[in-house]
Design a protein around this nucleic acid. Structure first.
Length: 978
RNA sequence: GCCAGAGUGGCGGAAUUGGCAGACGCGCUGGAUUCAAAAUCCAGUGGCCGCAAGGUCGUGUGGGUUCAAGUCCCACCUCUGGUACCA
């Protein structure tokens, strides 16, 4: 491939396209002229275009980053030229585990290494010529920034969720029940603390000893930490939680109005996991006399009549086991109950004989990590408590079991088991020989053995018609659900209920590199915590991180901030001594609201100015990777809704349109299987080929390489051959598979953007990433693809610049003359297509159209200057440096960034004749040239008259003539009847 | 297992949402230029049959609807994401 720096010294510098000169020149120009500085308030129509800001890792920018950033940059440059007021900022998400791990690895304080990484990222981003308003840059680690992150936390702390209004309100407006008020101030404060959106809890949490911190459910995948893949165990620890579950309903509902892809919406919906059913109370009040069924049934009857008058209580008493079910229509089929091992009733419900069995089962379950629980899912385990509950619909006694397939954190932590119609219950019942009673007749269905289902030997979860269900027999599942919902409510034994899979957000981490909580724990005179907490006053924010000599994790749950100097750790306010909260916030905190700060990044009195917020929000286009589909996007929507409820922001949702860029994979590589590798070691040796062993998800393959170590390269195409659809190593019988994988060091397929810019320039990198394929599709990298767009930029350069001149000068063909009709048609076709494609993010096809334009004008000996100017404007969002350089050369003194975008004049598109394909029986047989406005009849006549078509019509009867105006003609014919 | 999305030349990928399959790019072949090469320019390039004109087959597999299917329907195969006891 040619290089922008010729190897041979030249006598005269020919004005070749040299991005190494052109690109820094224009980057300097934009910076010095503040070309892309956004106004404080939008002027005219506003457009807020946001990239998911990067995590500045020590590795530097990855080729995946510029993909989304180029897409937004093209959109912004395009819309500025169309006159919109564009806000397009960039920043850094710099707190969190990876940065801290990197700091530890390189033995640098996190702040220092973070600043270094940010500097590298900034250099790389600027090198790519993105039109960010750099005056708004921020990092979540800036003290000025996290001051407001802490402030938002105090808002969460000050908010409770009013279920009636479905809205977050100030804690001062929380109604205090009289009985609480009667107990005094301390009780009131505890009551308030129990209702705050930010609260402390002692629940079981995911503790990762290797990372030295707890993790949110979302950060644990298959029982291992999302970052690092380390084992995670369950431990009870006092932690800060955010009540995101209160917003589950709104987070789900409000998805509807968003312009997001269906798949992301679906992922969020599934994560929130709404289900509706009923809560039902099973009577257990007569425990002591469970063996005496007479007394039990008397107690049950009196409980039932009490309930009929008192109704279904908000909180279940000790005399009932409350369960949640989505199938209340199967109540008659409940043959046993299950409570989670962590259920508070376990002890009470366990009879003396079963005590030791239950105890050891629960201990075992507690020791199991989530991973173990999942892995053992195939075999259901459990143990009988020895006691029974009474089914409210038929008074039957139902045995109560403890089993870990029931989760304490979902629903009520207890279920009624209906083995006939629930797969998990069925497996359990089979294993423990528990009766199976069918209560739903599925009818005749494919893949369902109706007789087996009714006999209780097969499980069926389909809906159907009720059987074995007393008065309800014959009802359809839907009607049954409806009726029993009402009946349970009148009897006071149950009520309709909605549940969500979403859990509250575990918000504290035991690491150093995060935002300190703006929370103070009151101490008594002896220095012990009183249990009273308060938020730091807004005017005392920020709470900066103290200097610590040793901030490394030590595998124990005490946060490093616990070792802070006393003057930081023990503030005294109004004579009262406090201890600061020593947990820090998770990485997600800073990214929850950065889009708001960009609107007003320097504001020292508010997190964002209200007027500015109203003017710029919501984000009109938000682009980033799909890996944030649930976590970041759910968290920030939650924070935004709280801020909205409290009146601090004006929109219910932050990101109106979301688009996910597809992942860029490494260049395809040739693999062989372990068996082939073992059998052909000598052949590979002879050919001087090396292999790279890679393991992924317990599959092992070998990647073939030329050379070894860092100098190794992947096999080239001509080292392979394809025979009968199978690739072989050239000249051998060694079968190869070709695969493109995620870029990773271990596969040796990582592409560094710096290298591409050095070889071909930023414009080529940008253009290539946009040309690779559809924006949202996953696509493999290709070295020769970059060469291709580099050649295109050179061709574009050469239709305007005279490469053979001694000085930079216009090509002789570029003249101030009127364009021909054909030239205008090509230009306006290009304008139309490129405009439409940018609007729909179809960048790859837009570039194709620009290539066609250049191909056409390469063959034109006269290139009207006005046409070239329009072309340069069309090209400029994609290759902005080249665009500016050519624009200047065409005689313009200032940037093209605000030149009006070319407008397509349809009248130039009209062609004097068009080509219409003619089919006979759906097969293409000829083409006719006709006037665009030809009548149907004339078109048919022309088609019939065509030389190529005639033989196919000869001797046949035309039974139908199909004409699609402007598109095609099709004759349906048949052999004449003899 | 379940839920999405995808499967088109040697390769990356296009195809007014049912209307000329393979735009554009890479690669390859031939030619021009060159002492030669690189670069550049021009032409060609899905398979098969044919000297050609042309024919014929062709969008993962098998069926179907239609004048017409890459596109719609049914069944299946493969890959990529998501999810995994949520009652």
């Amino acid at each position: 491939m040619s290089s922008p720096c010729p190897t041979k010294p030249k006598a005269i510098t020919m004005p070749r396209y040299n991005p190494a000169d052109v690109e820094p020149k224009w980057q300097r120009y934009w910076e010095q002229n503040e070309t892309f500085k956004a106004p404080e308030m939008p002027e005219g129509e506003k457009l807020y275009v946001l990239d998911m800001f990067p995590y500045p890792s020590g590795e530097g920018l990855h080729v995946g980053h510029p993909e989304g950033y180029t897409a937004t940059d093209i959109t912004c440059r395009f819309e500025r030229m169309r006159g919109k007021s564009v806000l397009h900022p960039m920043g850094f998400d710099a707190f969190g585990l990876p940065a801290e791990e990197y700091a530890i690895k390189t033995n640098t304080p996190p702040r220092i290494s973070t600043e270094k990484n940010i500097a590298t990222f900034t250099r790389q981003l600027k090198m790519l010529g993105f039109s960010y308003d750099w005056s708004r840059v921020l990092a979540t680690t800036d003290v000025d920034y996290f001051r407001w992150t802490q402030w938002i936390f105090t808002v969460l702390f000050d908010t409770w969720f009013d279920h009636d209004q479905q809205k977050g309100r100030p804690i001062s407006e929380l109604p205090i029940p009289d009985e609480v008020r009667a107990e005094g101030d301390t009780a009131i404060r505890h009551f308030q603390d129990d209702h705050r959106l930010a609260f402390q809890s002692d629940a079981l949490v995911n503790w990762c000893p290797k990372l030295g911190t707890v993790l949110a459910n979302e950060e644990v995948i298959d029982g291992k930490s999302e970052r690092g893949g380390y084992p995670v165990e369950r431990r009870p620890l006092r932690q800060w939680m955010l009540r995101i579950t209160e917003y589950a309903g709104r987070l789900e509902q409000d998805l509807e109005g968003l312009d997001w892809s269906d798949s992301i919406k679906r992922m969020q919906r599934e994560w929130i996991g709404r289900s509706s059913g009923a809560e039902v109370d099973f009577f257990i009040g007569a425990q002591s006399s469970a063996t005496d069924s007479d007394r039990a049934s008397t107690a049950f009857e009196s409980w039932k009549s009490d309930r009929a008058t008192s109704g279904f209580p908000r909180k279940p008493g000790d005399d009932v086991l409350r369960i949640y079910t989505t199938r209340p229509d199967t109540l008659f089929g409940a043959t046993y109950m299950v409570i989670a091992p962590e259920h508070p009733f376990v002890d009470r419900l366990t009879v003396a004989d079963q005590k030791s069995a239950v105890k050891s089962y629960c201990e075992q379950a507690a020791a199991k990590s989530d991973l173990d629980r999942t892995e053992l899912a195939k075999d259901k385990t459990g143990v009988f408590t020895g006691s029974y509950a009474i089914n409210p619909v038929n008074g039957e006694e139902v045995p109560i079991w403890v089993a870990d397939y029931v989760l304490i954190s979902y629903g009520t932590g207890a279920i009624m088991a209906v083995p006939a119609h629930d797969t998990r219950d069925f497996e359990f019942a089979q294993h423990f020989n528990i009766p199976v009673i069918a209560v739903v007749d599925p009818g005749e269905l494919e893949d369902v053995d109706r007789a087996a289902v009714l006999a209780g030997t097969e499980c069926c979860t389909e809906q159907g018609t009720a059987v074995n269900s007393g008065d309800y027999n014959g009802l359809t599942t839907a009607a049954f659900k409806q009726k029993i919902g009402n009946d349970l409510a009148t009897q006071g034994t149950g009520k309709r209920a909605t549940n969500y899979k979403l859990r509250d957000w575990l918000f504290s981490r035991q690491r150093f590199w995060g935002e300190p909580f703006p929370i103070l724990h009151e101490l008594d005179d002896a220095g012990n915590p009183t249990g009273m907490i308060r938020a730091v006053d807004p005017e005392d924010l920020p709470v900066d991180l103290p200097h610590l000599d040793d901030y490394k994790p030590h595998g124990k749950p005490e946060p490093p901030l616990g070792k802070s100097p006393d003057e930081w750790l023990y503030p005294v306010i109004d004579g009262k001594r406090y201890k600061r909260e020593t947990n820090t916030m998770p990485q997600w905190a800073g990214s929850c609201w950065y889009y708001l700060r960009f609107i007003d990044p320097k504001n020292g009195t508010a997190f964002v100015d209200r007027e500015k917020e109203r003017a710029w929000m919501p984000v009109d286009l938000y682009i980033g990777g799909a890996e944030h589909a649930v976590l970041h996007l759910l968290y920030s929507r939650f924070w935004h809704k709280v801020l909205f409820d409290r009146g601090y922001v004006s929109t219910a949702e932050p990101f109106q349109r979301l688009v996910n860029q597809g992942m860029i994979l490494g260049e395809p590589q040739y693999h062989i299987t372990p068996a082939v590798f073992e059998a052909n070691k000598d052949v590979l040796d002879k050919l001087k080929l090396n292999t790279l062993r890679v393991e992924s998800e317990d599959k092992v393959t070998y990647i073939l390489k030329n050379g070894s170590g860092d100098a190794s390269t992947d096999l080239s195409e001509d080292q392979t051959e394809k025979r009968q659809g199978q690739f072989y190593l050239a000249g051998t019988e060694i079968p190869l598979t070709t695969r493109a994988d995620k870029m990773s060091k271990s596969r040796g397929n990582v592409v560094n953007p710096d290298d591409i810019v050095r070889q071909h320039g930023a414009d080529s990198l940008r253009l290539y990433e946009m040309f690779m394929g559809a924006f949202e599709a996953t696509k493999p990298w290709s070295k020769s693809g970059v060469d291709g767009v580099w050649k295109f930029l050179n061709r574009a350069w050469r239709i305007i610049v005279d490469e053979n001149a001694e000085e930079l000068a216009l090509h002789a063909s570029v003249q101030e003359v009127a364009a021909t009709d054909e030239q205008l048609r090509v230009l306006h076709k290009t304008i139309k297509a490129v405009t439409k494609d940018i609007e729909t993010l179809g960048f790859n096809t837009a570039i194709s159209r620009l290539m066609e334009f250049v191909n056409f004008f390469t063959s034109q000996s006269v290139r009207p200057k006005a046409v070239m100017e329009q072309f340069v404007l069309l090209l400029s969002p994609f290759a902005p440096h080249l665009g500016e350089e050519l624009w200047e050369l065409l005689g313009h003194g200032t940037t093209l960034a605000y030149e009006p975008w070319p407008v397509c004049d349809e009248s130039y598109l009209v062609e004097s004749t068009i080509e219409i394909p003619v089919q006979v029986l759906g097969k293409l047989r000829g083409k006719v040239q006709v006037a665009p406005d030809i009548s149907k009849e004339d078109l048919i006549a022309a088609a019939k008259a065509d030389d190529k078509v005639q033989p196919w019509l000869e001797g046949k009867t035309i039974i139908k003539e199909i004409v699609v105006p402007g598109r095609l003609v099709n004759f349906v014919v048949k052999e004449p009847a003899n």
